[in-house]
Every structure is written in structure tokens, then in C-alpha cells.
Design a protein around this nucleic acid. Structure first.
Lengths: 115, 115
DNA sequence: CCGTCATGCAACTTAACGGTTGCATTTACT
DNA sequence: AGTAAATGCAACCGTTAAGTTGCATGACGG
């Protein structure tokens, strides 16, 4: 029973990595941007201006979905994809965490020099 | 004289994508975290607890460097790598931009419903 | 029912990624 | 000068990722 070993809000490195990895592609970045701005859309709609095949877009949506950045719900004969803002918040927090580390390091350095 | 066509802070999609892509790997994420917290380090130092070969770490540093997240300066017979906080700020801003888009979209929706 | 529109599934190709090993080069130390 | 440390460079390998094509399935509209 190892309660201690697992902090409550412990976000695993791999989760964050997969999040950033999902954002680390131009096509996917555009998809996320489109969905965050335009509400729910179907695959064919998203495929329209993308310059890629529908299948390619489907795969990208799969990646985004695994990372939690997007969620698709079937509606009739089409599937509507919507942006999932929580994932983005997580990403932001981890960036903030690194920035905070950096600030602390600077502060330590400043104090050490000032001594 | 095309001032209008090019916004001053126009960050190309591919740049942001390469930034996130660089962060989209556990090993690199740890490297960034280490460097942001521990100041400048040499490759051998960074290799120590990584569980990887020095060459692997070197490659990862190359990726991080291309993304602007890290910068290496030669100092004697070693090369010291330091964290570059500006890149992280860029990443954060692009996340903020998407979040802002999302908020606007919600606001538009709210007003439309309220009408 | 039948055509068609939207999607799902699978196989395949190409290129990039993460990682390794081996050797060369530069710098420090005595 | 000569040795050991720190790094650089290059070839190579296995795996995954991005993208394609082809075909199957499911829902809508007349």
C-alpha cells in the first residue's frame, strides 16, 4: 500500500511530454487553433483547408485526442470534434513550473552574490 | 513598403511547432527542467543521471538548441549549456493565444444565445 | 430500397527519431 | 611530450510517425 510514493497532483513527465508532442506539429497546431476558435466541426470540415487527406486529418485528431486536447462525439452520420481547454491549462501549468524553477535559481544566485 | 502584411511579433507556426516538439519528449523535458533549476552544466554532467549515452544527450541538446530553449557555449575543454527562458515565454504566449481564442468563441456563443 | 455522404479500418511507403558504437579532435595537467 | 578528460563527427539500426490508397460500414434522403 504505497500511499506516500504518489503525490496527489503528480503529473507524470510522460503525460506532459505527450501533450507537448501533440502540439509539436504544424498541422495539429492549426487544428487546435481552428477548433478553439470555431467551435465543434466534423472531419470533412476540418479537412477542407488543410491541404491533406481526410485520413491524415483523422490520424492527427487521434493524436490530439490521446493527448486530451480534443474530444470527438458521434452525432448522426458524422463525428463532431471539440476543443478541450483543460489539457491546455495543464500544458500551461507545466511551463509555469519550469519558469518558476528558473526564477528560484536566479534568486538563489542573486543572494549568493550579494552575500 | 509592406508594413501591414507582417505583424511585428508574427511567430511562424512552424517555429512554435518545433518549440513544442522539442518539449515533447521526456528526456528533453527533464534536461530543460534540470538546466532551468541548476544553472549551466556540461554534457557529461547532464549525462550522469540520465540513463542514456552521452551521444544521446548531445543529440537532445541539439534539438533543444535548435528550438532556442537552450544555448551552449564552449568554455575550455567543455561546453556549458544554459537554459534560455525567452523561448519558454514564446511557448507560453502561443498557449495564451489559443486560450484567448477559446474565450472569445465562448463569449460570442454566450451573446448569441442571450440575444 | 438505393445512392451517397461521412466516416472507419487496414496495409503500405517513406522519412524522421532516438539511440548506439567507434573513432577523431581539442584541451588540460604533470 | 604524453596521457586522460570532454567533446565532436559519422555511420548505422530499429521503431515510430506522417501520409497515402483502397475498401468496408453506417446513416440520410428521396
Amino acid at each position: 500500500m504505497s500511499h506516500r510514493a504518489r503525490r496527489p497532483s503528480a503529473v507524470r513527465v510522460d503525460d506532459i511530454a505527450s501533450l507537448f508532442s501533440a502540439l509539436g506539429d504544424g498541422t495539429r497546431l492549426k487544428l487546435v487553433s481552428t477548433l478553439s476558435a470555431g467551435g465543434a466541426m466534423s472531419i470533412t470540415q476540418l479537412t477542407a483547408g488543410s491541404g491533406h487527406t481526410r485520413q491524415a486529418v483523422t490520424k492527427h485528431l487521434g493524436v490530439l485526442s490521446s493527448a486530451g486536447l480534443v474530444r470527438g462525439e458521434k452525432s448522426g452520420r458524422e463525428r463532431l470534434w471539440k476543443f478541450e481547454p483543460d489539457a491546455l491549462t495543464k500544458a500551461r501549468h507545466s511551463l509555469d513550473h519550469i519558469a518558476a524553477q528558473w526564477d528560484e535559481a536566479l534568486e538563489r544566485l542573486r543572494r549568493a552574490v550579494e552575500e
